[in-house]
């Protein structure tokens, strides 16, 4: 609205079977949930491979256009990157020098990527314990740009899915500066666990399920537990996380089987501290999985709002 001064951003999370979108607005320091929606995809969708296929990309563009019908505008969409389109590598810090650490990490990335270096867009994340090289394939980012033009939505911004989960926890006001947090985000074809320690991103585990079903089976629970225990392994045994956050529909289903991995196991609600439009509140109520299902999309929207 003219003169309102509100800034908008929409987080778009494309999973195997659906597109989740969260539109947020910010006026001064107040962030509000403007709209949210889920659009089912006709076929299982694997990113980023199928973005390169014209037919598949057209189907996804059609799904993105459906978001507008559901009341979600995508003038500033933010997409989450994962899978083979990107990677996060944990490295060491050079003490007391963020500049040198950044240079070292970028140099290592160049060594590691060799001839592929120019094919990636790179950035660095530094926490108090580690440095992380973050890389995304330039070609994939360009394909997202093509997708957005096809869908007639705004130019895309990007963030890594694990970072979006961390930002969702922060934006929802549940982040703590002490102890360990475990974010569990499960999809039909893939699982992801993010470990935070003392409020900082520390590690991520991503894996493909070995079976092709969609239900949370005993085998899937075993695999999930093994990865969680791997992340929480201190070298002298497995510690329990202080807090486990469930950040997807399937993660909610798996929650009851995760006893012993965390002192508390809670659905992640990224909108807990936000004002909500009535229509957005209604859409959220009707959403399978509620706020937890929208955790990644919400984290992406939080990230996008930080730029405007």
């Amino acid at each position: 609205m003219f003169g309102s001064g509100s800034k908008y951003c929409t987080g778009v999370h494309i999973t195997d079977d659906a597109v989740y979108a969260v539109q947020m607005s910010r006026r001064r320091k107040t962030i509000s949930l403007s709209a949210c929606a889920r659009v089912d995809l006709p076929d299982p969708y694997q990113l980023p491979e199928r973005l390169a296929e014209d037919v598949d990309r057209a189907a996804l563009a059609a799904a993105l256009r459906q978001l507008a019908v559901a009341g979600v505008e995508c003038q500033r969409p933010y997409f989450g990157l994962g899978g083979t389109s990107s990677f996060v590598k944990r490295r060491f810090l050079i003490p007391n020098s963020r500049t040198e650490t950044r240079e070292q990490l970028m140099w290592e990335a160049r060594q590691s990527l060799e001839d592929d270096y120019d094919d990636f867009v790179l950035d660095v994340l530094q926490t108090s314990r580690y440095g992380f090289v973050v890389a995304a394939r330039r070609e994939v980012l360009e394909l997202y740009g093509v997708l957005c033009r096809q869908a007639k939505i705004g130019k895309p911004g990007f963030d890594m899915i694990p970072f979006a989960l961390v930002n969702a926890l922060e934006g929802g006001g549940a982040a703590r500066d002490e102890g360990s947090d475990l974010l569990v985000q499960l999809e039909a074809a893939q699982g992801r666990v993010v470990l935070m320690r003392d409020g900082e991103f520390e590690a991520e585990a991503v894996w493909d399920w070995e079976d092709e079903g969609t239900a949370v089976s005993a085998a899937r629970i075993d695999l999930l537990r093994s990865y969680v225990e791997g992340l929480l392994d201190t070298g002298q045994g497995t510690e329990a996380a202080d807090r486990v956050w469930l950040a997807s529909v399937q993660a909610l289903d798996a929650g009851e089987h995760l006893a012993g991995l965390g002192r508390s196991i809670t659905p992640l609600d990224p909108f807990a501290q936000l004002r909500r439009r009535t229509s957005a509140d209604e859409a959220l109520e009707a959403m399978p999985g509620g706020g937890a299902a929208l955790a990644v999309a919400a984290g992406l929207a939080f990230r996008g709002l930080a730029d405007v």
């Binding site: 980012l141 934006g171 930080a306």
Partner: peptide, 12 residues
């Protein structure tokens, strides 16, 4: 704790 803000802009 602060929000993670990496920059992955392809054509900036």
């Amino acid at each position: 704790m602060a929000m993670i803000r990496i920059e992955l802009e392809n054509d900036r």
